[in-house]
Deep mutational scan, measured.
Amino acid sequence: SGVNQQQLQQLMDMGFTREHAMEALLNTSTMEQATEYLLTHP
């Protein structure tokens, strides 16, 4: 699906929903950016 499943699982383990985590990974290129994205786009 174009996203790193390991990163997706890590974000879900942090408490984010699958949909939200996927959106973040699709819009960013690193785990750090994805986390930042999730925190700034709740």
Rank of each mutant, 00 (worst) to 15 (best):
E32T: 06
Q7L: 10
N27D: 03
S1F: 07
N27V: 10
T35G: 04
G15N: 04
G2Q: 14
L8M: 06
Q9V: 08
A24H: 01
T17G: 12
E23P: 01
A21K: 00
S1L: 11
M14V: 04
L26N: 07
L39W: 11
H20P: 05
H41E: 09
Q9Y: 10
Q10P: 03
V3R: 05
T30I: 02
L39S: 13
P42Y: 15
Q5V: 12
N4A: 08
Q9P: 01
G2L: 12
S1I: 13
E36Y: 08
P42D: 11
T35F: 15
T30V: 02
E36F: 07
T40R: 08
G2S: 12
Q10Y: 13
Q7K: 07
T40C: 14
Q7T: 06
A21L: 02
T35M: 15
G2V: 13
Y37P: 04
H41M: 15
N4T: 08
E32A: 10
L11M: 04
D13Q: 14
P42L: 15
T17F: 07
N4D: 11
F16D: 00
E23M: 12
L39K: 15
A34K: 00
M12G: 01
T30G: 05
L11N: 00
T30H: 03
E36T: 06
A34F: 01
L26C: 10
M22L: 12
M31Y: 14
F16S: 03
A21I: 08
R18I: 07
H41N: 08
L26T: 08
L25F: 04
A34P: 00
T17D: 10
M22N: 05
A34I: 03
Q6A: 14
V3Q: 06
T28G: 03
H41S: 08
Q7H: 15
D13W: 11
L39M: 14
T30A: 03
L39F: 14
Q6E: 13
L38C: 06
N27W: 08
A34R: 00
H20M: 15
L8E: 01
M22W: 09
H41W: 13
T40D: 10
Q6V: 12
M14F: 06
T35Q: 15
T40G: 14
H20A: 14
L38Q: 03
N27I: 09
L25G: 00
L38A: 07
L11Y: 02
L38S: 02
Q7I: 08
E19L: 11
T28F: 09
T28I: 02
M12W: 02
T35N: 05
